[in-house]
Design a protein around this nucleic acid. Sequence first.
DNA 1: GGATCGATCGGCT
DNA 2: GCCGATCGATCCG
Length: 225
Amino acid sequence: MARSLPRSFYDRPTLTVARELLGAILCRRLEGITLRARIVETEAYVGETDLACHARAGRTPRTDPLYGPPGMAYVYLTYGMHHLLNAVTEPKGNPAAVLIRAAEPLEGIAHMEKARGLSTPHLIGSGPARLAQAFGLDLAWNRTDLCGKDLWIEPGDPVPSRSIDTSPRIGCQNCPEPWASIPWRFYVADSRHVTPGRSRPKLLVTKPREFGNNRASRVRGTSHR
DNA sequence: GGATCGATCGGCT
DNA sequence: GCCGATCGATCCG
């Protein structure tokens, strides 16, 4: 049952791994139960030249896992309170990884709901920090072998390319171009379990402005902090 | 439904 | 010191 993806799966170009991780099943063994969730959103971070990738700073104690063998977990803390899970990719020495951004709970859902403190299905794993919280992942999981027995990823039903959408990576707006705009985020287009607010490329929702009341002067609130 | 803002801390400049 | 690979509460429309 626990047929985890082999290390060779991760030992490939990061963009390929990011696409093919869609539909795969993230799993964690707990006492008595197994958590399973279908990955529906990923982002690729590729090397020191990618100025959105942590490896832009070179090899440091923090980024060291990115330089290690493929198939290892890279977990770090962001904003002082959120943990994010990555899968290290490409041959050893090539600092790159796939950020696992969102997943649809399949098994062990009650445990995930408890860990998240809520039970709204599409809010359990729809974001990298939410997913990490649902799975109980923190810094102790950094460098965990994803080809091991505690935390692993199983093959799932492949997502056809027509069902995959792309976008710029979230939270990289301040990076220099082309890194801010390069479409290295991949997600299952019709999934309700992706990061909210960015799943749909905004259809023709914008109504024609009827009253010429185009007040551009947006009062910039009295910024008292 | 969209925009804004505060929380909170490790790592790098 | 400064700034995040974020989330959730809150306010507004």
